[in-house]
Simulated assay, not measured.
Amino acid sequence: MIQYILRRAVQSLIVLLGALLISFVILRVVPGDPALMMLSDLATPEDIERMRAALGVDQSVWLQLGIFLKQVATGDFGMSYRNQVPALDLVLSYLPATFELAVAALGLTIVVSVPLGAYAAVRKGSWVDNMLSGFALIGQSVPVFWLGIMLILVVSVQFRLLPTSGRGGLSHLILPAVTLAAAQVALVSRIMRSSMLEVMRQDYIRTARAKGISEWAVILRHALRNAFAPVVTVLGLQVGTLLGGAIITETVFAWPGAGNLLVNSIGARDYPVVQAMVVISALVFVITNLIVDIIYVLLDPRVTYS
């Protein structure tokens, strides 16, 4: 296991380097000059050139890349062009709100989808199973932004039950978390159902039943743990989806998280902030998948990494 973790650490560094290079290239290819966006329409060509020199974007692309990689190696992503504060500090100040939303959505996904999928598998062909199939189809088809807007119109505007936007207490978190979790619940519940159906056909389940163990004891003690292992893998992959989906959800609900910061920074061509966000997102994704691999071994000792 130690050798596996060390190998994954090396692979993670390669992934992070690739994310850095891709974000660097894409930002430079997209039309737009950060100097022009920071100056008024009355700026002279001399003002623009001085601003470009101050931002360092007047250098060649290769020199900019070298300076950028050197800064990242020392943990310094540079100064935000728009806010004039360290880019990493700015991103870290916005991340708690995004993580709060993502963790709430992930928790809601687990609490709802795992029992629902397991029960639908146990009651295969019942109205619960049919309802789950319909919900999964709708949940994965509805766009996140449309669902968020509909929840605001119905729950907040029509019935005035919850706030329409902003970040505050639990009441502000409910609608964004439900919006972000809806598609994940639909996906994970279907996978949980399929995994449970597969496990319920295994020989050790028939053996447990033959010993006279009650049906619910068989499900809870033998089937559920083994069926949950593939779901853990999917949940790990969905962390990246939750972070990506949070950008849209944060925009709809005016949630003050890193998603809003990223959208505004891309529009302003604030290269340091965008690149810091890309690296942090890649780092979270890599660490999450490593944790998932370790949990998978704990759930199923037959799995080994060499």
Rank of each mutant, 00 (worst) to 15 (best):
A186Y: 11
S113I: 10
W216S: 09
T164H: 04
V252C: 07
D41S: 15
R302M: 14
Y204Q: 10
L17P: 05
P96F: 01
I247W: 04
I48F: 01
S194R: 05
T179F: 07
L65S: 03
A136N: 03
Q84S: 12
L180E: 01
I26D: 08
S141K: 05
V279T: 05
V303Q: 13
S133A: 14
V85L: 13
T251S: 03
D293C: 09
I191T: 08
F253G: 03
A104W: 14
S60V: 03
I26R: 05
L242W: 10
L42D: 02
M192Q: 14
D76G: 00
A258L: 13
G125A: 07
A136P: 02
E250F: 00
I295Q: 09
M196S: 06
L17R: 07
D89F: 15
L261K: 05
V61L: 11
I291W: 10
N264F: 03
A53D: 06
L224F: 11
F99V: 15
G18N: 05
S93D: 15
L170H: 06
S281H: 11
A136C: 08
S40L: 09
K211T: 15
D41I: 14
A182K: 09
S113M: 13
R52P: 08
G259H: 08
F24W: 02
P272I: 10
D203Y: 11
L69A: 15
L13V: 03
F285E: 03
S93W: 10
G245Q: 07
V155L: 06
W127M: 11
Y81L: 02
A182L: 15
G244D: 10
Y296P: 08
R193V: 08
